[in-house]
């Protein structure tokens, strides 16, 4: 293999891969936090929550989660974790 002559590059690559997996594990946790935020904020006039702004917020968070997951998915499947032993 050509890349074997550049160990630093390889190291960085597998390091990135590990962190990408970490990110994949964190994503649902941050996602849950963002989805629970509407519980915290105060509605505009009435006591109950406002449908339209809340709805837009939730859909934006939702779309963001999908986008991040889509960006991470290809990196997570390559070589499908075969040669690289799982840590922790």
């Amino acid at each position: 293999m050509k890349q074997r002559r550049v160990p630093l590059f390889l190291k960085r690559r597998s390091y990135r891969k590990r962190r990408l997996r970490d990110a994949a594990r964190m994503l649902p946790v941050f996602g849950l936090f963002l989805l629970l935020v509407p519980v915290l904020w105060r509605p505009a006039e009435t006591v109950r929550a406002d449908t339209a702004p809340d709805g837009i917020y939730l859909f934006v968070v939702w779309f963001g989660l999908i986008l991040v997951a889509a960006l991470m998915a290809p990196g997570l499947t390559e070589e499908s974790g075969g040669d690289d032993p799982e840590e922790g």
Partner: peptide
């Protein structure tokens, strides 16, 4: 389900 799927690695 969205959370479960975006966290599929878990």
């Amino acid at each position: 389900p969205t959370l479960v799927f975006v966290g599929w690695w878990l």
